[in-house]
């Protein structure tokens, strides 16, 4: 049993680039999933019945499916549905975005819905318009409740990017496992992969804790 850890150093450029792809995927997904989540949440809260039903169905569907299955399904269905040949990165991004949008929609809906109706009524009783009341009174309170959950979703998303490795997107998991296959240094590469994720994920998890403490809501 001999270990050659130098293989990690030898491939540090590739691993660094792959890490960058992972980060890019996370940022890009959130950039799509936050505004889309707001839209879907608004549909569920304020739109007329058929649209509400569609939005609810969307959320329920994508919260009850494994992401890895979504990735495969997107890989095979999207080219046919959109008639484009999408690169794996875009396919992976699409699957991630569909998934996270659903979770965000639920987060936004629950966050806004948790603000007592009396708050809105009190604001309007002061003479504010509904829009003013929502903007100045309801949303700031909702943001306090939403932010910690959003932070938690971000960390989950960061980890979930590893799943698009199955369709050969060159993020960290895929590249690390490729190097393993090429060099046969299984333990070293897999441990390095775990270590890199740990180094990136641990501070993020701690940050989420801090955010949750700071924005803790006491009734």
């Amino acid at each position: 049993m001999n270990f050659d850890w130098s293989v990690v150093g030898a491939h540090r450029d590739a691993l660094a680039a792959a890490t960058g792809t992972t980060v890019l995927l996370t940022v890009a997904t959130m950039a799509i999933a936050v505004p889309c989540g707001i839209v879907v949440a608004s549909l569920r809260l304020y739109a007329w019945a058929p649209l509400r039903a569609i939005a609810t169905a969307y959320v329920e569907l994508f919260r009850n499916l494994p992401l890895i299955l979504l990735v495969y399904w997107a890989f095979y269905v999207l080219p046919i549905a959109t008639d484009l040949g999408l690169p794996p990165f875009a396919t992976g991004l699409a699957a991630l975005a569909l998934n996270v949008t659903a979770y965000n929609a639920e987060t936004f809906r629950a966050g806004i819905g948790s603000i007592r109706r009396g708050q809105l009524e009190a604001a309007m009783a002061l003479g504010m318009s509904r829009a003013q009341a929502v903007r100045r009174i309801v949303l700031p309170q909702a943001v306090r409740r939403i932010l910690p959950v959003l932070a938690s979703t971000w960390v989950s998303l960061f980890k979930d990017t590893s799943l698009v490795s199955v369709i050969a997107v060159t993020e960290l998991a895929y590249v690390a496992m490729q190097i393993r296959a090429q060099t046969f240094r299984v333990l070293e590469m897999l441990t390095a992969m775990a270590a890199i994720y740990w180094l990136l994920g641990y501070p993020q998890a701690k940050l989420v804790d801090w955010i949750q403490r700071r924005y803790a809501v006491t009734e």
């Binding site: 960390v155 980890k159 979930d160 590893s162 799943l163 490795s165 998991a173 496992m177 897999l190 441990t191 992969m193 775990a194 994720y197 740990w198 990136l200 994920g201 641990y202 993020q204 998890a205 701690k206």
Partner: peptide
């Protein structure tokens, strides 16, 4: 915290 930081895929593969 380690389990919160590392993806399931990585844990299973390792």
């Amino acid at each position: 915290d380690s389990m919160r930081a590392v993806p399931v895929l990585v844990v299973l593969v390792w």
